[in-house]
């Protein structure tokens, strides 16, 4: 067994937005191949954390390591092309077909058109959409749930080992949201990526996570599997944040 390099590591990271430190001497290790959800009340620094991984936000001090490499030494454009990224508002390009949307990162990387047709087909099948039916459609012709599936497929297109998701399902209706959550779990059993998933939806966080990281005011309150958190909440805050009724349900 080789030495496992953590997918992402934060070392003594401090981030300041001018109104005080959002994060201070923050340490965190995200293991590879798992779905890790980051939850916490708004303003707790969860999105900041996520965006520091692909250098959309730079820390004031400390270092962020992706697969052992310090991100500040890497070209941000190259780094981002090698990390999947899914955002809340979906962010599909309205003037591009589904196929063009999915293949955008490989195209940025200069891959050949011929390989991309095949790749798009595989990805559409992977997310459960018929390639013949969908490849040449435009985003506005799809439902919200379908659009966000495309968003996920697009993040997978260049086969990154890490995918960042910033509240990707929060704009969807409850039914599609639950369905996409299930699909994401199944999908990751197949593709085995490190998924860093930011959400403020506690149900979602507990449901899809292998590991949950609970943040408050820039500090980690508790990390562990969803079962860990429910069995042994570290503090009253955890109990309160997760909701008392959840503990009752769990103990039954």
């Amino acid at each position: 067994m080789g030495v496992d390099v953590a997918a992402v590591q934060f070392k003594q990271v401090t981030k300041n937005y001018g109104s005080g430190n959002v994060l201070e001497n923050f340490d965190l290790t995200i293991p590879s191949g798992q779905i890790v959800t980051i939850i916490g009340p708004s303003g707790c620094g969860k999105t900041t954390l996520l965006k520091m991984i692909n250098r959309l936000i730079e820390p004031e001090s400390g270092s962020v390591l992706v697969e052992g490499q310090e991100v500040s030494t890497l070209n941000p454009v190259e780094l981002r092309r090698n990390i999947g990224y899914v955002i809340q508002q979906i962010g599909l390009f309205p003037h591009m077909t589904i196929e063009q949307n999915i293949s955008i990162v490989p195209r940025l990387k200069g891959e050949k058109k011929k390989d991309l047709v095949q790749r798009t087909e595989e990805l559409l099948q992977l997310i459960g959409l018929d390639p013949q039916q969908f490849r040449s459609r435009y985003p506005h012709e799809l439902s919200g749930g379908q659009q966000q599936r495309i968003g996920v497929a697009r993040a997978l297109a260049s086969n990154p080992s890490i995918i960042l998701m910033d509240e990707p399902f929060s704009a969807l209706d409850p039914i599609s949201r639950v369905q996409l959550q299930k699909e994401l779990i199944k999908l990751n059993e197949k593709v085995q990526k490190t998924i860093v998933f930011v959400t403020h939806d506690i149900d979602e966080a507990l449901k899809i996570a292998d590991q949950v990281i609970l943040l408050k005011d820039g500090f980690i309150i508790q990390t562990g599997t969803p079962a860990n958190l429910l069995e042994a909440p570290a503090s009253d805050f955890v109990r309160e944040f997760l909701g008392a009724e959840r503990f009752e349900q769990y103990s039954i």
């Binding site: 692909n54 959309l56 454009v77 190259e78 780094l79 981002r80 092309r81 090698n82 990224y85 955002i87 809340q88 508002q89 979906i90 962010g91 599909l92 390009f93 309205p94 955008i104 990162v105 940025l108 697009r154 960042l164």
Partner: peptide, 11 residues
């Protein structure tokens, strides 16, 4: 959001 998506994907 489109610009953020583009930047985040490495454009």
């Amino acid at each position: 959001a489109l610009i953020e998506a583009g930047t985040g994907m490495g454009m």
